[in-house]
């Protein structure tokens, strides 16, 4: 009987009030924390550091949303998820927002009943091979053994690529990125394939990164973005426009350094509307006027987040490429704030 009491106590400890169905915003506010699903660890995108603090590009999105909704970028409960558990965690209401470099696909958006709120990283699947193999194109990979990280769209893309080019391969599915590395380095597979950003991050951690090349072929489109449950459009709007605010902030030159100065008022009405000194945008999505200001102040604008976590100065060392602003020839294009 004593034990069952203990279970009761545990239940009390484990139960957190919250409706999975609708009004996610109210839940998050009453809970005082945002539950955000991330990966179990991918350098640059989401990984806890030595102090247990989550860091990374996806993490920054969570923090921005928390800052916009709750006014505190640290009010986030990070829930590590795997490729298998992420969708159930979101569908069952365990998490409010999934920011786990998830590819936006038709069936996920429709059949699985989720809403992608935007794209925070435009990626594509690539191949990495040791330089010593002398391979210059993915089409020369006939008969190769390929390490793939499972639980993603990469397996399907890979199968399609080899089928369309009518060449053979042996797949070696690997659960985590960390486990794929020794296999690739010891030559248990010739090729490692995952999203190009992941390849760069992986290569950065090698003893001699220069001995490996990333092949020119990008065999798929991988728009990675945060997603929410289908049906709660208010919450979807908040997540979506927080992301847009980060992107727009870079376009208009709002940085974490000058945001205080700019929020005093500028002569650009768009900036004023974003920062809440003009118009009623915050009220339209059920937040206060300074929501976007807090979101940007949390970790900087999109460019700052990118540079800090995965940019060329970091070990991951990614170039902006497709992820530059549309004004610089990239794909980032935030709709107007009005």
């Amino acid at each position: 009987m004593k034990k069952s009491v203990f279970l009761g106590a545990l239940t009390v400890a484990g139960l957190t009030a919250g409706a999975a169905a609708a009004a996610t915003l109210d839940d998050v506010k009453s809970r005082g924390k945002l539950n955000c699903g991330v990966t179990t660890g991918l350098v640059g995108f989401a990984a806890p550091d030595a102090n247990g603090e989550w860091q990374g590009f996806d993490v920054a999105v969570c923090r921005a949303v928390a800052a916009a909704v709750l006014g505190d970028p640290t009010a986030v409960e990070f829930v590590p998820t795997t490729g298998k558990t992420r969708f159930t965690a979101l569908a069952s209401g365990e998490i409010d927002l999934l920011a786990r470099n998830t590819t936006w696909t038709f069936s996920r958006d429709t059949d699985l009943k989720f809403d992608f709120v935007g794209v925070n990283y435009y990626d594509g699947q690539g191949f990495m091979v040791p330089k010593a193999l002398g391979v210059t194109s993915a089409k020369e990979l006939d008969g190769a053994t390929v390490c793939i990280q499972t639980g993603t769209t990469t397996e399907l893309n890979l199968a399609d690529f080899f089928r369309t080019n009518n060449i053979e391969y042996t797949p070696v599915p690997i659960e985590t990125n960390a486990e794929a590395q020794p296999l690739y380095l010891e030559g248990a597979c010739d090729v490692y394939t995952t999203d190009a950003s992941g390849l760069a991050a992986t290569r950065a951690a090698f003893e001699t990164p220069g001995d490996h090349v990333i092949l020119p072929e990008i065999i798929s489109k991988e728009p990675l973005g945060p997603l929410v449950r289908h049906g709660d459009n208010e919450w979807g709007d908040i997540a979506s426009w927080t992301l847009m605010a980060l992107i727009a902030a870079e376009e208009y030159g709002i940085t974490s350094a000058n945001i205080e100065e700019m929020s005093a008022g500028t002569n650009n009405p768009e900036i004023n509307r974003i920062l809440g000194t003009e118009g009623e945008l915050g009220a339209m999505i059920g937040l206060d006027a300074e929501w976007a200001k807090r979101a940007i102040a949390a970790g900087g604008n999109y460019g700052e987040i990118f540079a800090k976590n995965i940019g060329e100065e970091t070990p991951v060392g990614l170039a902006r490429g497709l992820n530059a602003q549309w004004t610089d020839g990239g794909l980032l294009y935030a709709p107007p704030f009005r």
């Binding site: 490729g83 298998k84 969708f87 069936s107 499972t150 639980g151 397996e155 399907l156």
Partner: peptide
């Protein structure tokens, strides 16, 4: 329980 579950989401 692995790839099929991941790809279809039919948990």
């Amino acid at each position: 329980g692995g790839i099929t579950l991941n790809q279809t989401g039919r948990a």
